[in-house]
């Protein structure tokens, strides 16, 4: 067992656990978006950031991937952390102001849509990659992938053609946190 502290409270976790695993085990709340226990962590949404002091320096890391180490000091509620989280929620809320999941997070962080909010998009895809990972790791189909990069990055089928790998199982629809998959589904499947 590895012993360390989260917000000053002594906690323990097993060798290959992440900070988020331990926090969940002890009922410490860390918000997440692209995390799902059924698939490998991906590290895209950055909502689960925490500050870790490993004795040498203190830095901001993502709790869903950061492996626990003996004696580290984890802080989940600092000005730096809250600044990152608040901005992520703000940016995502402006992308899809009508998404229930985003509204829930917005209420929690006290964020309201800004002057840059997008009009007419209710269920924007946040590229959290849960559908891609679920299709690959849980279904074993690899019918979904990322295409393009940067602002043009998208969820698509390999080579942008209807995928024969797709079993129409609906797992991607189930894991999608925003509902964007409902609009993508027909384009992706064969």
């Amino acid at each position: 067992m590895i012993t360390f502290t989260i917000d000053g409270k002594e906690v323990q976790g097993q060798e290959d656990w992440t900070v988020l695993d331990v926090a969940k085990w002890h009922g410490i709340d860390i918000p997440t978006l692209c995390y799902h226990p059924a698939v490998e962590p991906y590290g895209a949404c950055r909502l689960c950031v925490v500050e870790v002091d490993d004795g040498r320096r203190s830095r901001v890391v993502i709790s869903c991937m950061y492996p626990i180490r003996e004696g580290i000091k984890v802080l989940t509620d600092t000005p730096r952390i809250n600044n990152v989280r608040r901005w992520i929620v703000q940016l995502l809320l402006d992308e899809s102001p009508a998404s229930p999941k985003m509204q829930e997070l917005a209420t929690k962080f006290g964020v309201t849509p800004s002057r840059f909010k997008k009009a007419g998009v209710d269920f924007a895809c946040h590229l959290c990659g849960l559908c891609v990972r679920a299709c690959h790791e849980v279904v074993g189909a690899q019918a979904l992938t990322f295409g393009n990069r940067g602002l043009r990055k998208e969820i698509t089928s390999p080579f942008h053609t209807g995928s024969k790998e797709c079993l129409s199982c609906g797992t991607c629809l189930y894991v999608c946190p925003t509902g964007a998959m409902e609009q993508l589904f027909d384009k992706v499947g064969a």
Partner: peptide, 21 residues
């Protein structure tokens, strides 16, 4: 940098765009 961002994480993909705006 917006052009060259891979788009994987939200601060870089959307944050840089917002800074530009």
């Amino acid at each position: 940098l917006i052009d060259e961002s891979c788009g994987k994480c939200i601060p870089c993909r959307l944050g840089l765009k917002r800074m530009r705006e």
